[in-house]
């Protein structure tokens, strides 16, 4: 009982601090860093559904991210359509793309799914680069300024984006927490432990994995929309590149694959490290932060495959 009180108190304090944060810290750079932490934590939670709980390693989530981002932005540019609808269309397209990848791959075992997700990411990136009259190609595409307008997700300050990312994070966190203990989570756990046994007990493994992938893609695409409007500029290499797909996976793996808090802890650690190395080493040589990434990934996999969140668990 006493423990419960402590837990609620802690949650309440954390909630107040997170809500008041933009009022307490008015440094734009730090506000943006926190925005990125929540954004990556949310994508990580989504990635974890298929990559962690489903044990189907995706290295192509940037494809979903980019489809969401580009669809919403292009609708604003060509149709002046609000991203609240354009983004929804983007999410639907991303889910369709995910279905196309998942359908053939989930019949197979082995690394096929991973390779197919890389293929999907590269196809999206190459197409965005190629159709430059429409997408702006390698130069990227800036968002036309529509004034301080919620309908176009454009604000004169950083704080609204922070709150949007925080809100999205909270919603996705509780969704994943629910799914973890719902039928889907149990089925995924069974598949991860022993696919044959799960199948013999009547689990439709193909369908379950597919469901996890589709939700995961939808979450990632929604994050892509929010990202695009917060930075008001997107280009194929930064939103559809293999590096982004890898970064998403690294966040979860460093934090703890297949755990609820893993993506959260991973996002805090990885974004903090990235920002720090960019701040202090970025001028010396580009690539320094990525050396660290690679090293972190190697170390976690070979020394602590359960990730950093396992240090916090009591049992």
């Amino acid at each position: 009982m006493k423990k419960d009180v402590k837990k609620y108190l802690l949650t309440a304090v954390a909630a107040v601090l997170l809500l008041a944060f933009p009022l307490l810290v008015d440094n734009l750079y730090i506000q943006h860093s926190f925005f990125m932490i929540f954004l990556f934590a949310t994508i990580g939670l989504g990635w974890n559904l298929i990559g962690g709980y489903g044990a189907q390693l995706s290295l192509g989530h940037a494809a979903f991210f980019a489809v969401g981002a580009y669809t919403a932005v292009l609708f604003v540019i060509y149709q002046s359509l609000t991203p609240l609808i354009g983004g929804l269309v983007g999410v639907v397209i991303a889910v369709a793309v995910a279905g196309l990848i998942g359908y053939p791959c989930f019949r197979l075992r082995g690394p096929y799914f991973t390779l197919a997700t890389i293929a999907a990411g590269e196809i999206v990136r190459t197409l965005l680069l190629h159709f430059q009259d429409f997408t702006g190609g390698a130069n990227g595409i800036p968002l036309p300024y529509k004034g301080d307008n919620f309908l176009f997700l454009q604000f004169s300050s950083k704080a609204p984006y922070y709150y949007l990312a925080l809100a999205m994070f909270v919603v996705v966190f509780f969704l994943v927490r629910y799914l973890e203990h719902a039928k889907m989570g149990r089925y995924l756990a069974a598949i991860r432990e022993d696919q044959d046994a799960a199948e013999s007990l009547g689990v439709q493994t193909h369908k379950v994995k597919m469901f996890a992938l589709l939700i995961s893609a939808a979450i990632t695409a929604a994050c892509g929309v929010l990202y695009a409007f917060s930075v008001s500029f997107i280009d194929p290499d930064s939103v559809a590149g293999l590096n982004l797909s890898i970064e998403i996976a690294v966040v979860v793996i460093v934090g703890g694959i297949g755990t609820l808090w893993g993506p959260v802890i991973g996002s805090v650690v990885v974004i903090f490290l990235t920002e720090m190395t960019n701040l202090y080493l970025g001028d010396i040589r580009s690539g320094a932060s990525l050396v660290l990434y690679g090293l972190l990934l190697i170390l976690v996999i070979s020394i602590r495959p359960q990730g950093l969140s396992s240090f916090f668990r009591r049992n």
Partner: peptide, 14 residues
């Protein structure tokens, strides 16, 4: 896959 992916990022950026 993850280990060699880490190695790949590491080598490329070193």
């Amino acid at each position: 896959i993850l280990l060699t992916l880490g190695l790949s990022i590491f080598l490329q950026n070193v």
